[in-house]
């Protein structure tokens, strides 16, 4: 009992700080989301759940949610596959290993807004290097089909290095002896990958998925710079929509409701992954 009391006293400061910096803002956003708050008209009226009822009927919101889900699913899957491949390759010993690892990191090191601008130019139909190299005249950012995939491509290009770093770290803690033992038992490299690497890497893979899914679900900067949500909202994610509602049209109530939906989605994703991780351990 005494120990428990002392324990509570030890964690109290961090609990208080966490409450102040995370719980309070979330509660405030929730409070705002129950109001019709239009800054320019000095309106702030309690409307209970009206914002959420409007949200259910808001076609633009559902479109944004669909875009976000598609973006998240595809980009995270590609990043994991590519990242795993590159990490396994980089984990072998070869000359210039250090240099290669450093080079892989470059896309991650460039600020997103800068790289998005860069890609915007490279995707240009007229003078973009991509059409030049492929010898085609595709309007990458101007057609709904290509625009969302171009955005996913940029995200994969940018964050695969992050996945590679985490997975490389995971690969390095796998004991060498396991591979030697497997080899003595006559395992081929695919078998070794499946039966040794993959199971031991799984906890790290789950962490990667957790980070990447949360990040991708909140995606804003890369897509905003690349397309601004267009053409015709075909690349508008929930975060971009919330930003426009909050800061461009100043509807703080409805914008808060949108933000809270993003918060609940990412929260559920986080809980899902963490359950998966702890479930494995016990």
């Amino acid at each position: 009992m005494k120990d428990k009391e002392r324990g509570i006293r030890y964690v109290a400061p961090s609990l208080i700080v966490l409450t102040l910096v995370t719980v309070y803002p979330v509660l405030y956003v929730f409070y705002l989301s129950l109001h019709r708050k239009l800054l320019i008209f000095n309106i702030s009226k309690f409307i209970a759940l009206d914002n959420y009822l409007f949200l259910i009927r808001d076609e633009r919101f559902w479109n944004a949610l669909r875009n976000t889900a598609y973006f998240t699913g595809l980009s995270v899957a590609l990043e994991l596959l590519l990242g795993l491949g590159i990490a396994v390759l980089l984990n072998r010993s070869f000359r210039l290993k250090g240099a290669s690892r450093a080079i892989v990191l470059i896309p991650w090191a460039i600020p997103t807004v800068v790289s998005a601008r860069m890609w915007e130019m490279m995707f240009n139909t007229d003078f973009g290097v991509i059409n030049y190299l492929l010898g085609v005249k595709i309007n990458w950012l101007g057609s709904p089909f290509w625009a969302i995939h171009a955005a996913i491509f940029v995200d994969v290009w940018k964050t695969t290095p992050f996945v590679v770093i985490l997975l490389t770290a995971g690969l390095q803690v796998i004991p060498r002896e396991l591979y030697s033992a497997a080899r003595i038992d006559g395992a081929g490299s695919w078998q070794m990958f499946r039966s040794v690497t993959l199971p031991l890497l799984l906890p790290v893979i789950l962490v990667v998925l957790l980070f990447r899914t949360l990040d991708a679900f909140r995606v804003f900067d890369a897509v905003y710079v690349l397309t601004g949500g267009g053409p015709a909202n075909s690349t508008e994610t929930v975060s971009i929509y919330a930003y426009k509602v909050l800061f461009q049209t100043l509807q703080f109530g409805y914008g808060s409701a949108l933000s809270l939906v993003v918060f609940f989605c990412t929260g559920s994703i986080g809980i899902f992954y963490i359950r998966l991780m702890t479930g494995r351990r016990t």
Partner: peptide, 23 residues
């Protein structure tokens, strides 16, 4: 009009849809 920013937020995607042939 004080509503201009809201109006523009509606016009932008609709104009975009019309000129790209989506609608």
């Amino acid at each position: 009009t004080p509503y201009y920013m809201m109006i523009s937020q509606v016009l932008q995607p609709e104009f975009s849809a019309a000129i790209t042939g989506i609608r």
